[in-house]
Every structure is written in C-alpha cells, then in structure tokens.
Amino acid sequence: MIPLEHYLLISAALFCIGLYAVFTRRNAIQVLIGIEFMINAAVINFVAFSKYDKAKLGGQVFALFAIVLAAAGVAVALAIILNVYKYYKTIDPGKIDELRD
C-alpha cells in the first residue's frame, strides 16, 4: 500500500518540473510539454485523493475532464504554433518578440 503522501510528493515534483520547463525551454512545443506536466501533476492529485471521496468520486471525474480539456488546449496551441512558424521560421518564444514595449 503506497501512502498518500507519496502521491503528493510526486505530483509536486512533476508540477515543479513542468513549471521549470515552461520558464526555460526555447521551443514552444517543449513549453507545451511543460504545461502538460503541470496538468498531469494535478490529475495525479485528483485521482489519489478521490480515495477520501468514495461517495461522489469527484476527483476521478475531474481527472477525466482535465485530460480532455488538456487535449483540446494542446490541439489549439499546436495549430497556432504552425501559424507562427509560417511567419517566423522559428518557434522559439524568445525570438518571437515583435510586440513589446
């Protein structure tokens, strides 16, 4: 039996890895992967802690919704990245900076 704290630790680690990737990666798709890490960290929490919510299983249902919405978000973001590549010939968020102060 794996204690519940382990899930919390793993999800916290995943979340931090994801956040680090979002801030440091020089490629928009890798940033998306970082976002995906963060979403999945939350999903682990939901599934693990629905143990205490046996009547409604709200966490498990939420996890399903989160997975679907993440897929929808990524689909839109990938289409947008394609558009950006058409104009800039790069998908490095640091180099796409025509709009700034």
Partner: peptide, 20 residues
C-alpha cells in the same frame, strides 16, 4: 500570429497552475 501564441502559451500555463 505572435499575439495568439503568446496568449495560448501564457494562458495554458496559467490554467495549469489553477488546475494544480
């Protein structure tokens, strides 16, 4: 195109943070 990618990446990160 740049506006949309900035919006999508920043928005995706923020909603992931909210989800967590």
């Amino acid at each position: 195109a740049e506006a949309s990618i900035k919006y999508a990446l920043f928005g995706g990160a923020c909603s992931a943070i909210m989800l967590y």
